[in-house]
Amino acid sequence: MKALRMFAALALLSLAPAALACINTVGTDHSGRKFHPNWYVGTELTASMRPYKVGPNNIWVRNVIERSRKWPDFESLNDLGVVLIRQGKYARAIEHFLTVERIFPGHAQTAANLGTVLELSGHDRVALRWIRIGMQRDPNEHYRTEWLHARILEAKAAMAADPDYLKGRSITGVSFSADLVPPLPTKLPAGNDGRPVALWQLNHALSYQLSERTSFVAAPDPVVANLLMDWATLNLAGGPVENAAALYDLAVRYGAPRDALMDRRQAYVREVLAKAKNGPAPRDIKCGICQPAD
């Protein structure tokens, strides 16, 4: 979804000026070593993860509407549908994307957008069908993270039949030990292509899908809380511990229980950061969940 990716980038640029230095951000691993994760860290990571809509006077909205009137091709009509989603006009967006599918059939973006707006309208099972169609049309859709969207919809369908379905379950399909600092999971879920994802791909999927989901879904929400708990623990085990602390806090805001284990882990993060405050300069260390350099 080109327009949604563009809008997400604009949202990130709307962060406070201090957050714009994210390219050079320093993170700390659970042993206290500093490194460059090359992405947002800590509260900078979670600052933009909040619901928002766009108004009719938004410059992006005006440009999309003008372009779709002048050149009603697939791209402009797709973007117009995204405007409707961002404005919360879900019924009109569904009708619009079904029309786009009839005029320009077979596009992965249409299927993904239909899956998104159908879910936002409460039609999770139909949404899942369209998300799967989108993955079939293009396995690279949404940077190969749509497997996680499908798992979310599968979980929501199960929750409709059993409200306690999420108790003791991970939507992502990973499990962590109850150790203070758990090891990274070795059993990983299947990605868009049906093969197990790498750890960095799991991290990327959680980052991408949660960044979009939290722009639509307000707290509390058990699905978002479940995903945030896994993402926080993943960062504790193999990423910047600053992220773990911020994501645990956001998970609590979305309804996750602040239990004794979370308290111990956040206390440990504070200890690690206090000791590392005046430590050596960042080093080129191996980050367990960071994308490998090309």
Rank of each mutant, 00 (worst) to 15 (best):
S175E: 10
K275T: 09
S68P: 05
P139C: 04
T25K: 13
A251I: 02
D73V: 10
N243P: 03
D179Y: 07
L227Y: 01
P139R: 07
W147M: 01
G81W: 00
D221E: 07
A256K: 00
R169W: 00
R129Q: 12
P56D: 14
M229S: 11
S215H: 11
A18D: 15
A16H: 14
I103F: 09
A16F: 12
W39C: 11
R144M: 13
A21P: 09
A16V: 12
N63I: 12
R151E: 06
N24H: 11
R67I: 15
D249F: 06
P17Y: 08
A161F: 09
M6K: 13
R33A: 15
C22P: 08
N226C: 03
A267G: 12
C22D: 11
A47L: 08
S207I: 10
S76Y: 04
R137N: 12
V197R: 02
S76P: 00
V117E: 00
G27V: 06
Q201H: 07
L118F: 03
Y208G: 11
K53A: 13
N113Q: 14
D263E: 15
M1K: 07
A256H: 05
A108W: 07
L227W: 02
D29P: 00
E95L: 09
S177W: 05
W39M: 13
G194E: 07
A244S: 12
N58R: 06
P183H: 05
N192C: 03
M229R: 14
L236D: 00
K53Y: 10
S177K: 08
V181Q: 06
G27C: 08
E154L: 03
E44G: 10
T110P: 00
D294I: 09
T186G: 11
L118V: 04
W147F: 15
G81H: 00
N113I: 08
Q209A: 08
T214S: 07
H30T: 13
S31D: 12
I152K: 01
M49C: 04
P189S: 09
Y254K: 07
G88L: 02
Q109K: 13
N278G: 11
A251H: 03
Q209W: 05
A3R: 09
Y248V: 03
A150N: 03
N113T: 06
G32T: 00
N278I: 05
M1V: 11
P185D: 05
A16R: 15
A178F: 07
I65W: 11
R69P: 04
F74A: 15
V82Q: 08
L166N: 00
Q87N: 07
R129A: 13
P163M: 05
T99W: 14
D79S: 10
G32P: 00
D263N: 10
R137G: 09
P282I: 04
R253A: 12
V26F: 02
R33K: 12
K275S: 11
P183D: 08
L236V: 02
L77W: 05
P220D: 06
V54Y: 06
F104A: 04
W71Q: 15
R50C: 08
E75P: 01
N38P: 03
S215G: 14
G239H: 02
T28M: 01
D79Y: 08
V197T: 06
C290M: 08
M159Q: 10
M262E: 05
A18G: 11
R102E: 15
G255F: 01
V117T: 02
N24P: 04
V54D: 05
V64K: 00
A260Y: 09
K167N: 12
K70P: 01
V269F: 01
W60R: 08
Y268W: 10
A150I: 02
